[in-house]
Amino acid sequence: MQKSILKSHQTLFFALSITALFSLTGCGKKPAAEASKDLPKVELQTDWFAQGEHGGYYQALAKGFYRDQGLDLEIRQGGPSNYPVQLVATGQVAFAMGTSDGVMLAVKEGLPLVIICAYMQHDPIALMLHEENPINSIQELNGKSVMVGPGAPWIGYVQKRYGITLNIIPLNYGLAQFMADKNFIQQCFVSSEPYFVREAGGKPKTLLISDTGYDPYRVIFTSQQFAREHPEKVRAFVAASIKGYEDYLGGDPAPANKLILERNSKMVAPQIAFSRQAVIERKLVAGDPAKGDRIGLITRKRMQQQADDMVTLGMLPSALPLEKFVRFDFLPAEYQALVEQ
């Protein structure tokens, strides 16, 4: 359902200590690949339970694109208590989903992470309201209570941009209050929560955060060490994932959908269809090809813009040099010209 930036949240504190304990003692190490094949095993930590948004990765897995690239990929499902940044930083998984601004914050705090490609061109984070709510834009939210993940950079951005103050209630990953209160406003994934609200008889509308001009990538990141030691695996993963999304969004999504339904017992086919449709209509993953967007692409210009935004917002004291947190060289050869556009 919902993801705040980089899946960080309340109990991070505990998770970090446990992660630290495990990584210090070495008991967190996965047993060496129990895979039947001899292919090297790598892991992708997703940001929620298996769902339509993740379709490209499941499609690539189902159709053997990773295997063809010489990888044995394991997709690990996320959930409300999930710490992708910590898992990657401590070497327990190779890849994880996050946002570009979240990775920057983590890198600034000394976490050795690096972005390798985009997962989505545009962040699906939105504010969800009831249809009868007279508010129709984020500018009108001054002084209103909104349930969002506290501390997310976009909050500072919209407050600054529109000169408004939001009254923030910490996100609790539930819809009970939204359903109970016609005036309630909360954070959502434009491709997920509205489905549940409709199923429960509600009529939601959404205000996309990316429409305000604050538009970070959703990204895949790995650790500096993994990128340094296994560049071929990173390249193979990026190539197979791009192929997976091209196939999932442009072709027959059935192989991925079957896998998603198998892995997530709470998932139903109509919800997957809803999510996939939202991803296509809102150009979340593919972006706008007319503007030079491509599945998985990250451009130097947009990254620099986002790094500068973070400084403007006061989230970073000075712009983080791109080489500290992102590498463009894992993208396919044919993307390299686009990176610099």
Partner: peptide
């Protein structure tokens, strides 16, 4: 504060601040 706090008028408490710090990796 962690579960039911809010930020209105600077009313956020230590629980709220903890969420903000943790979401921004400010160890």
């Amino acid at each position: 504060d962690f579960t039911a706090g809010n930020s209105a008028g600077g009313q956020g408490g230590l629980g709220y601040l903890t969420i903000v710090f943790s979401s921004q990796f400010q160890m």
